[in-house]
Write a protein that binds this DNA or RNA. Structure first.
Length: 209
DNA sequence: CACCAGGCAAGTA
DNA sequence: TACTTGCATGGT
């Protein structure tokens, strides 16, 4: 059986991305860089509680004050600057208008996001897939690990190459890419702790597509 | 106690 | 170009 069906049979739908608004999902994409979602959740709760999850409020908030609110997410000083950079980008390129940002073309959005310091390929693609709901496949460390351990890819494969491997072998459907990435994270969390290749892995004997 | 978590940029040679 | 290092809290 193929990878997607093995995972969804095992775990069911994951209902990603956690977040009620596009801005919340975008902030979460920065905050979760190399950080567990549990810690990110506390940081987002702080922002929500103080009514700061708003483009204008964040734009006018000093980085040091933002850093205090997002402290539980770790790397708080650098993430405060990164989040400010992303907000500045929205204000300067889209007049701080989220609907304007969300209606732009995918290629232009990705190029713009990648020009923001602190937004790399995974963060940009997470924003495109989960906030802007584009059919963009998100690659992360779990995706590399699972495919590498199962002998599907070489370790020196690039982000864009691995992304292309999925996108060229799957129908370009946003809903599918959303669930697929969430299931990869779920599967890795359950079965990829420690051992190079877990004997319990539900993907043993699988096919990519 | 060590190690990891839904990365990224800057520094080094 | 190809590594290496800093960033930092919270859970196991």
């Amino acid at each position: 059986m193929d990878m997607f069906n093995l995972m969804i049979n095992q775990f069911g739908a994951q209902h990603w991305w956690p977040g009620d608004t596009e801005l919340e999902m975008m902030a979460g994409a920065i905050l979760t860089q190399n950080t567990s979602w549990k810690n990110v959740d506390k940081a987002i709760a702080n922002l929500k509680d103080k009514g700061l999850l708003d483009i204008e409020r964040l734009y006018n908030l000093p980085p040091a004050a933002l850093a205090e609110e997002i402290r539980p997410a770790g790397y708080f000083n650098i993430k405060a600057v990164r989040l400010k950079n992303l907000i500045n980008f929205l204000v300067e390129q889209y007049s701080g208008d989220m609907s304007l940002f969300l209606s732009d073309k995918t290629e232009r959005l990705r190029e713009g996001l990648l020009s923001v310091k602190g937004v790399g390929p995974e963060t940009a693609d997470s924003i495109l897939l989960y906030a802007a709901r584009r059919a963009v496949f998100v690659i992360d460390a779990y995706t590399y690990r699972i495919l590498y351990r199962h002998g599907i890819i070489e370790d020196q494969i690039t982000y864009d190459e691995l992304k292309e491997l999925f996108e060229s072998n799957l129908p370009a459907e946003e809903g599918l890419f959303n669930e697929f990435h969430a299931l990869i994270v779920r599967t890795a969390k359950e079965f990829c702790k420690g051992k190079p290749l877990c004997g319990q892995c539900p993907l043993n004997g699988w096919e990519l597509v």
